[in-house]
Design a protein around this nucleic acid. Structure first.
Length: 843
DNA sequence: GCGGATCAC
DNA sequence: TATGGTGATCCGC
């Protein structure tokens, strides 16, 4: 810990010059001894070894590059500083003090937060189960990377996040053990069982650590009997506390196999008795006389004692740690404080197998913060440490001293974060994280540069991810490809689909497109990778696609009121895969006039329809609903308009449903909104051109592959339900390339048509941007279409169309409340009398 | 919304 | 011979 201060002080002095320019090792690669069990090491020697092992590697080159980038960030920071006037600093100080005053108001000392952290968890589990490791420096991991090391190994400078081969250089006797995650996870479960008895809502951060709120437990504890705070302890240092030492002894959790019997045998079991009296009784009375053999394993009990734990926080936490140890034969450390930030720091203070408490007292907190290095705070890593160090901030108190400067140099978020740290204020709730926000898989490998093999790797990853997502019953919308070059350069490229999916083929298509783009960018060179990953974000649950129309209403209403509970409702911006899929499946049937289980309900609140109320219970993915504008009678009754936003998401979805079902029937006058995959919305008002109509069709057709929708980007507004004369005059279906006589082709034929009609000449053209290529493979064409749809091309088309139809009046969505007579055709005027304007559906 | 960076474990 | 995998967040654009 002391070295750390020295290192930080050095970096604060270095100013502009590169750090460690004299010594060979750059600071970011130096041993990070910010970890228990690593005090007082010969850092210089260790760093020299690390340097020797790294200096010629590409990894090292990249680290140097990053170091330089950091240096230039620091220079920028300094040039900013040079422009700050004294007056500005004074003003900033004033602002900062205001912030601190507000924070002070929020200070909450009423909670008792405990952070529990298993000591060298993975390593400890392995040592517990293998006596041959007991006296050896060991680490869990491989030559590539270590997950954790035992305390013996730490004396050599071997630590987590260090490559194994360097660990071996530091400590040639180091034993490497391959990780057994299943085992760690099982042990973790046991630990959690104990934790849950103190706080059922504890918040696990990983397999080996958790935050807990002890406040309630401590309250109850005050009322609890001494006996209920009595627990069994194995006598230590007899050897009988280690698994594998002596097979003759019971290794069960004595608090499970023995304690109940002890409790019921105690003469105090029905009485209120003081802790002292009970403890004295336990010390004199030898229970082991009566209980010698474990009924679970039939082995002899080891030597044990019983202890009554008091009602204080310290005793409660000690009891918890003891119970963990009895249960798992592993030790844990704990930190106790009024908030999570401090509790976390505390759990490290007396590691291993210790605990530390900061009392809920402002003075005590402030004196604790006084010389606490900022690096100890969770969230401040090596970069922030260095950035802050360069302006003289090393301890938490320094954050306060330099608050005016921090105000100028950092974002609002960071500044507030720093101020909270300086005041020792942290979160007092330990709620578990909500739903996950992304899911990913990535793999490091020996260099791959052959495009075929790269695509193969991509395929594997997508397959894995798709499976993981199906296991998790989750769908996603944004696909991100991550690549790391052999030079350790990391890049991410993402693409947002128009609907949620976890389908392998769709995933692959998106990821492949992104990868191909990167491969192409390197041409004529090769893209040389050492890692590839695929991530899916913007998730929604698989289940959520099964909502009824009523749910949908509720959801929109909740969300628009900014309800805190809106998380309980599906993301309003959803077009579920199932939804789309079901529409597509019904698509051909409807167009060809065959049976379908898709319900079509005009749900506009007019008097004449008895079917309408049934809509509420229909699953949406089999229901086509129209008329859901704010004028909708049912909707108004159910959810009075209280400044609610327009139901654009809903109408978007319904628009797509409508189009899918009626697109072939054509329309006389419609409005098109294109929602790009990028999220940009483009609108075209007035009459739609024939070409747009075809584009829409093509888009939907080309979206079908293996029966799956690929792209649904069009939202049709104001679509009239049925073909009529005036429409047929302006839009002849016979002109469609997808018509076979009077019959519409099914989707597979359309695909064929798309293919063959163009391949006669060998030239294939993109239906969107009209770009032509010789023998454009369908795969790539589809990928290209995706790209087109996501970029600006559609916008251009729509722009042109706008020009062509410049006689029609253009409206902003907002201004359209009623069917506009100025842009109406006579047909629409007629229709309007019998039913609400189609435009009003999507106001 | 996207991409780079930082951070924790 | 040789430096991980997963998830979250923030910032600047």
């Amino acid at each position: 810990m002391e070295q750390e201060t020295v290192e930080a002080a050095q970096s604060s002095e270095l100013g502009a010059g590169p750090s460690c320019s004299d010594s060979n090792l750059i600071s970011r690669m130096a041993l990070n001894d910010n970890k228990a069990g690593m005090e007082g090491l010969d850092k210089e020697r260790i760093n020299q070894i690390i340097y020797e092992a790294s200096k010629d590697s590409k990894f090292f080159e990249n680290e140097k590059k990053k170091e330089e980038q950091l240096e230039s960030r620091i220079k920028e920071q300094q040039s900013k500083i040079s422009k700050i006037t004294q007056a500005q600093l004074r003003a900033a100080e004033h602002e900062a003090d205001k912030v601190l005053a507000i924070l002070e108001d929020e200070r909450d000392l009423s909670h008792t937060i405990v952070h529990v952290d298993m000591d060298a968890f993975y390593a400890a589990v392995e040592m517990r189960d293998d006596p041959t490791l007991w006296n050896k420096p060991m680490a869990v991991g491989g030559l590539g990377m270590l997950s954790t090391s035992n305390y013996l190994a730490r004396r050599f400078g071997v630590r987590a996040a260090m490559p194994g081969f360097i660990g071996l250089k530091l400590c040639p006797d180091l034993v490497l053990v391959k990780p057994n995650f299943d085992k760690y996870s099982a042990v973790s479960k046991e630990v959690r069982q104990v934790l849950s008895q103190y706080d059922p809502n504890f918040c696990p951060m990983s397999l080996d650590e958790a935050y807990m709120d002890f406040t309630n437990h401590l309250q109850k504890r005050l009322q609890s009997s001494a006996l209920s705070r009595m627990f069994v302890l194995r006598e230590k240092n007899t050897g009988h506390d280690k698994i594998g030492e002596n097979e003759n002894y019971c290794m069960c959790d004595l608090n499970v196999v023995l304690r109940p019997a002890l409790l019921s045998s105690s003469e105090f079991r029905d009485q209120c008795v003081s802790d002292e009296i009970l403890q004295t009784f336990l010390n004199t009375e030898s229970f082991s006389k009566h209980f010698k053999v474990c009924t679970e394993c039939n082995k002899m009990f080891p030597k044990y004692t019983c202890k009554v734990f008091g009602c204080s926080v310290e005793d409660a936490v000690l009891e918890l740690r003891n119970r963990i140890e009895q249960r798992t034969h592993l030790t844990a450390s704990a930190g106790v404080a009024p908030n999570t930030m401090l509790a976390k720091v505390c759990s490290d203070k007396n590691k291993p197998n210790g605990q530390y408490r900061i009392k809920p007292d402002k003075k005590e907190i402030m004196s604790f913060m006084l010389d606490l290095p900022i690096r100890k705070i969770s969230g401040i890593g090596k970069v922030t440490e260095k950035l802050l160090g360069s302006i003289g901030v090393v301890t938490c108190k320094d954050l306060f001293t330099h608050r005016a400067m921090l105000f100028h140099l950092f974002s609002c978020t960071s500044f507030h974060y720093f101020m909270r740290i300086s005041a020792g204020i942290g979160s007092t709730c330990v709620e578990r994280d909500g739903e996950r926000k992304s899911i990913s898989t990535e793999r490091t490998f020996n260099e791959i540069s052959d495009p075929k093999l790269l695509l193969q790797k991509c395929r594997e990853l997508c397959k894995n991810l798709s499976e993981d997502m199906k296991d998790e019953k989750t769908l996603g919308k944004t696909v991100t490809l991550k690549i790391k070059t052999v030079g350790f350069d990391v890049k991410t490229r993402s693409f947002t689909l128009s609907h949620y999916t976890n389908d392998e083929a769709l995933l692959l298509k998106a990821a492949q497109m992104l990868l191909q783009t990167e491969i192409n960018a390197e041409l004529p060179g090769a893209l040389r990778l050492r890692l590839m990953g695929v991530r899916m974000s913007k998730l929604c649950s698989d289940q959520e696609s099964q909502v009824s129309v009523a749910d949908m209403f509720k959801r929109i209403d909740k969300n628009d009121q900014g309800d805190q509970n809106s998380k309980n409702y599906p993301n309003p911006d959803f077009l579920s895969f199932q939804n789309a899929q079901s529409v597509i499946q019904n698509f051909d049937d409807i167009c060809t006039g065959e049976e379908s289980d898709l319900h079509i309900v005009d749900f506009d609140g007019e008097e004449d329809d008895d079917n309408e109320s049934s809509v509420f219970s229909m699953p949406l993915n089999h229901t086509l609903v129209s008329g859901l504008g704010d004028n909708n009678r049912y909707k108004q009754e159910l959810f009075p308009l209280k400044g609610r936003k327009k139901e654009s998401h809903l109408s978007s979805e319904i628009g797509i449903l409508k189009f899918a079902c009626t697109g072939y029937k054509a329309a006389d006058s419609i409005q098109v909104t294109t929602k790009h995959a990028t999220g940009i919305k483009e609108e075209a008002q007035g009459k739609i051109s024939r070409q747009d109509m075809l584009n829409c069709k093509e888009s939907i057709f080309s979206s079908q592959e293996n029966g799956l929708p690929r792209k649904l980007s069009f939202k049709i507004k104001g679509l009239n339900h049925h073909l009529n004369k005036s429409a047929s005059e302006t839009l002849s279906e016979a002109d469609s390339p997808f018509m076979a006589g009077n019959q519409l082709m099914d989707s597979s034929h359309c695909l064929e048509t798309l293919n063959t009609s163009t391949s006669e000449t060998g030239m294939v053209s993109c239906p969107i941007c009209r770009q032509q290529k010789l023998n454009w493979p369908l795969d790539q064409l589809n990928t290209h279409i995706d790209l087109c749809l996501s970029k600006q091309t559609v916008k251009d088309i729509l722009q042109k169309d706008k020009l062509k139809n410049s006689d029609s009046v253009s409206h902003k969505e907002k201004s359209i409340k009623r069917p506009s007579s100025s842009s109406s055709s006579s047909l629409r005027d007629k229709k309007q009398k019998t039913q609400p304007s189609v435009i009003s559906y999507f106001k």
